[in-house]
Design a protein around this nucleic acid. Structure first.
Lengths: 335, 335
DNA sequence: TTGAAAGCGCTAACAG
DNA sequence: CTGTTAGCGCTTTCAA
């Protein structure tokens, strides 16, 4: 028997069960015990709902309760393991709390970020997480207008709690390792920093670690050319053109930038042999197993997300900076 | 001056503008021209709305219009470029159509897939795209109960239109290339297929291409051990244990499986030198630039998504199979 | 132990 | 050209 008609509502069920919509509602959403509805009625309504294929309309509930049950997240892209892992953990932890996770990517573009935030707010998200967004404070303001709390992840803001990696320390150790490699090999070239934006917090902190670790030890050059692979490729070309030789050590600011760096090195085998040690602030399994001479810093996603949802659970709203130590994964072999 | 109170509604604006809610509504949602509301009133309402910081409540609109403006997508994971790229294209194309994209990952688990579908349906998604899902027909049934159309991507179903890669042809060419490599090197070992599930359509089709291309040319072994990297690692160990030697050619069924394969080869350099040619049905930029001896098949995501949204735009609902040719990317060098 | 009724914010007849 | 009104499906007092 085909049921052509629309999905049944609690009114339909009430009619069939010869009871009232409010009774059906309370039975179906679980607070029938405190309404002291008889076990028997409750059970019969539940089986009826099942038979009729009843399904809750959460839009209606959201409108009435003024709580959508949606939690939003904005992130740059899905083109690396870091943000992919963040997305997966976020989804899981949101679902554990009975929330619908809604994630959207905005390519580090503040315009797109604001547009995405507005779209989510118009669906009345209850919370908005800004992961690696360029303009978290702007998003915070948008949220504040609607009294929606926001949280920052990976890149900090000044108006909401932020959970980020300890970029300074991670970069310091990574840089120190590269320098040690050069010393071990008795190589006396330069050290370059490639990728990222000199305007973003993470890049600034990593540069600080980079500079502190290299100070008075080695000449450095900085190419904060953006994250994109193509830009890193061109930055490498620039680096070469400036002096006619490539640096001996390379600090690369993300796997995406690393993509461009490696492509450049592959395209120019003649000039690339002067690069003897590479470190990347970010992690990718293929790099780990294929390039045995690249050190990587792996951000601790599970711990960061744990921390983020603790803030969520406590309804924390005051700006604060929480730094999580990333993990330095040394190259498996040395050439 | 702080505005503590909640966001204004069209009723508030109507009161302030000394007009009616329906007038405000029509002005704000754009069909005021056909209501022939005076230019002047329209403009004044618009500026008022702006001043008051009015924002549309889409939950309310959705309830009233019985159209949520949400399009859903279910996919396995974000741990590879293929699904990452699918997610990004999906978001863009959904936004182009004024829809809110909601994507969720379900680890190829039919239980989770059904649960995710139900969650989205309870928020009244207008359309649901199953990308690489294990049980697309089950999801289709769930959707059909609510009269919500569904579409399949990457992995086909029998009940809704499906856009997938041409797995057979892609696998055939990839296999042929591996065999050519062995011939060129005058190697006479075996050829193995590693990764994927022998129950899923893609793996079956790729196996068919693999078998047709290798038939009567070379001995083959099949290890459809699942996609996970760890499983592929163990499959490699099994392959070795069976005969005390590794195959000369390897057809790997995804980048995730490739991760495990490469890890195994790296862990066992003693036995791995017998592997002289590898092909992977999937693409990753790091593999491309770091492993110069691995051929890859890159699925044509832009074209697949173009095709998918054409089905969406035409409100296509009948089952059909559309195959998009993937691109064979040959290894850049040969050892 | 249960029902009636109001209302969340919006849209769309229908009536002027 | 604009206002009144009903109602989308649900939750929640309040009353019985």
């Amino acid at each position: 028997m085909m049921r052509q008609n629309k999905r049944p509502t609690i009114y339909d069920l009430a009619r069939l069960a010869k009871t009232s919509p409010s009774t059906v509602s309370s039975v179906l959403n679980g607070n029938w015990r405190k309404r002291r509805i008889s076990e028997k009625l409750a059970r019969s309504i539940k089986t009826l709902a099942h038979e009729q294929g009843y399904a809750l309309n959460r839009q209606a509930r959201a409108l009435r309760k003024d709580r959508s049950g949606i939690i939003g997240m904005i992130l740059p892209m899905y083109d690396n393991r870091y943000f992919g892992s963040i997305a997966e953990h976020f989804e899981q932890m949101a679902r554990d709390r009975g929330l619908l996770p809604v994630i959207t990517s905005t390519r580090r573009d503040p315009e797109l970020e604001a547009e995405a935030a507005r779209a989510m707010l118009s669906y009345r998200v209850e919370y908005l997480v800004c992961a690696g967004t360029t303009a978290p404070d702007q998003i915070h303001d948008l949220c504040a207008e609607e009294d929606v709390p926001s949280l920052n992840l990976d890149l900090p803001g000044t108006k909401a709690p932020s959970v980020i990696s300890d970029n300074y320390t991670g970069a310091y150790h990574l840089t120190a390792q590269i320098i040690r490699d050069l010393e071990d090999l008795d190589v006396h070239g330069e050290l370059a920093f490639v990728g990222g934006r000199h305007t973003d917090h993470n890049t600034k902190e990593r540069l600080r670690g980079f500079n502190d670790a290299s100070k008075a030890k080695i000449e450095t050059r900085i190419e904060t050319c953006g994250y994109a692979a193509d830009k890193a490729y061109r930055a490498m070309a620039d680096l070469f053109d400036q002096t006619g030789t490539l640096p001996s050590g390379l600090f690369v600011n993300s796997t995406i930038s690393l993509e461009g760096v490696i492509r450049f090195l592959g395209d120019r085998p003649d000039v690339s042999r002067s690069v003897v040690s590479i470190g990347c602030f970010d992690w990718d399994p293929f790099v780990q197993v294929l390039a045995h001479n690249i050190h990587m810093v792996r951000q601790n996603v599970p711990q960061m997300m744990e921390c983020l949802f603790q803030l969520y659970d406590n309804r924390e709203r005051d700006a604060a900076l929480i730094e999580i130590a990333p993990i330095l994964q040394l190259a498996t072999s040395r050439n």
